[in-house]
Design a protein around this nucleic acid. Structure first.
Lengths: 206, 206
DNA sequence: ACCTGAACACCGTTCAAGT
DNA sequence: ACCTGAACACCGTTCAAGT
């Protein structure tokens, strides 16, 4: 009897969920609006009611991706004991996400030639804000430029390591080792000493 | 009289050249075999004689891209005076390339779900070999793992910075500054001291 | 060996029409 | 407000046929 007369009101969410699945198995190229509609059981024109464009759906996926990555980063940070451990965990979570959802990550960092996609940029900013909080309170004696540089460099390095693994340039374990090396290098740098926490980076016995 | 009876034998090269142009103006999505054939003035089936697949053309573009990037890296390295300067120039060249040809760079580092694309991997390996030579001769007292880690970390960092700029997450000048910060950090690290050149990293007055 | 042109299945997008 | 279904222009890919 419940043969679903139309769709039950959550078509937008259903399309996005299905899209994430397809994205993981077939990549961005395998993602078509018509196929998505077919899988969910609506006509090919139906998605138009929720996404003006194919790009609009991709943007929505990117926003969702940034939110999920931010969540992961937050959890990883909370699970760490001292500051180095926290950074390490966030780095690992970042790279894991980028590799396991490589196609999604691709979407999140695509060129986006047109001016559109403001929501995506907003979601990206939220992620960076999360990273900023992970660095602890701003110190009066720290140059904001240095702090931003450290944060950006952290993100860039993780992104780069993930790209190497995702493109099969290096195997995953080597990527993990690279994370260790990178974190040791970054946390041991002068820049880190100048910018992070309350001098609690060298977590030895004071 | 020379109304070109068919095509003059270099259709493959003509298609690739046109593809690079389209890639720069319209991205990967704007790249279609039929459109390419139209621009070059052949029938839509003609490209098939040189590329079995659309993917085959994309792979060929990626190989070309890696070769060009390797050339750029080689030139940048040669133009540098001391080792830090050389590294800095290679880094700048790498990021410049990645930003100016962002769509091509995307192709070069795509997941490539299928096993295919061995030629692409080969071209990528050649680039890394070039980077390895830039690090100077291997030293007997250096762990090969450390040396590889430094090399990979260098590439990953540049790749990550380029991704941040290409996706408009940060403006280009900030990307350039980030290169400076990254190189200072990397070259000043213990890992660098253990792996690079003949202790000539700290290029001060001995 | 290289290219043409018809054919097929698939897309994104638009839009009048239904409920 | 949300969805259907026909329509249009565009693709990638295949393949018999031409030169």
């Amino acid at each position: 009897m419940t043969e679903r007369p139309f769709h039950h009101g959550n078509l937008r969410a259903a399309l996005l969920d299905e899209a994430v699945t397809v994205l993981r198995s077939s990549g961005v190229d395998g993602l078509s609006l018509r196929d998505l509609a077919r899988r969910v059981g609506v006509s090919h024109g139906a998605p138009r009611s929720h996404f003006v464009d194919r790009q609009a759906l991709l943007d929505a996926l990117a926003v969702q991706g940034f939110d999920r990555l931010r969540q992961r980063a937050r959890e990883a940070f909370a699970a760490g004991r001292d500051l180095p451990d926290r950074f390490h965990r966030v780095a690992q979570a970042y790279v894991d996400f980028a590799i396991d959802d490589a196609a999604l990550m691709e979407l999140m960092f695509q060129a986006k030639a047109d001016g559109g996609g403001e929501a995506v940029q907003e979601a990206a900013v939220a992620l960076f804000t999360e990273l900023d909080q992970a660095m602890g309170p701003r110190r009066a004696d720290t140059d904001d430029g240095d702090r931003d540089a450290f944060k950006l460099l952290f993100a860039a390095t993780m992104q780069g390591i993930a790209a190497l693994v995702a493109s099969h340039r290096i195997p995953r374990p080597e990527g993990d080792r690279l994370i260790d090396v990178a974190m040791t290098m970054m946390l041991g740098s002068e820049l880190a000493a100048r910018t992070i926490g309350e001098g609690e980076v060298g977590a030895g016995s004071s």
